[in-house]
Each structure stands twice: as structure tokens, then as C-alpha cells.
Amino acid sequence: MVPVSYYLVVSVILFTLGALGVLIRRNALVVFMSIELMLNAANLAFVAFSRTFNSYDGQLFVFFVMTVAAAEVAVGLALIVAIFRSKHSIDVDQLSSLKG
């Protein structure tokens, strides 16, 4: 018997680590991976609640999130490729042409 709050704690930890990754890594691909990690953390919370409330809605949401994530990855990686072509780097710190 595992309290559901344990799962949620894990979810929070993973989400925080994902957010941290977005903030501290410069490699655009790793930043992207961190975003995927955050999505997974959210998914984990969904499934945990789905189990708690004995409803499939949470799982279906996970299903949709996965779809969106797939689409996101497809577009996002395409963007990274396009950026790399013009900048010859995937260091997000190089992309500062919007500096005010």
C-alpha cells in the first residue's frame, strides 16, 4: 500500500527537476528533454489521481498529453534543426538577437 501522496511527491520532484533543467542547461536539445520530463511529471500526477478517484479521465488526459507532446517534439526538433542551420549552434544563449 502506497499513499497516493508519495506518487505526487515524486511528480513534484520530477517537475521541479525538469524546470531546473530548462533554466540551467544551454543545450537546446536538453532543454527540450527537460520539458518532456515536466510533461511526464504531470502525466504521473494525472494517472495517480485517476487511480485515486477510480476514473479513466486522468488516463485519457495522459493520452492526449502524449499526443500533444509528440506533435510538439516534431515541430520543436524541426525548429532546432532550422536554428542550427542558420546559427550553426544549438546553444540557446547564442540566440539573443531579441536583446532589448
Binding site: A19, V22, L23, I24, R26, V31, V92, D93, L95, S96, S97, L98, K99, G100
Partner: peptide, 17 residues
Amino acid sequence: LRALQNGFVRSYALSVL
């Protein structure tokens, strides 16, 4: 505030956080 608009996407993400 101009300093905030430093063009670094990570910095913007930090703001969001």
C-alpha cells in the same frame, strides 16, 4: 527594465518561473 530583455531565452523562462 531593458536589462530584463537580454534576449536569452533561459532568462525569459526564469521570469516565467
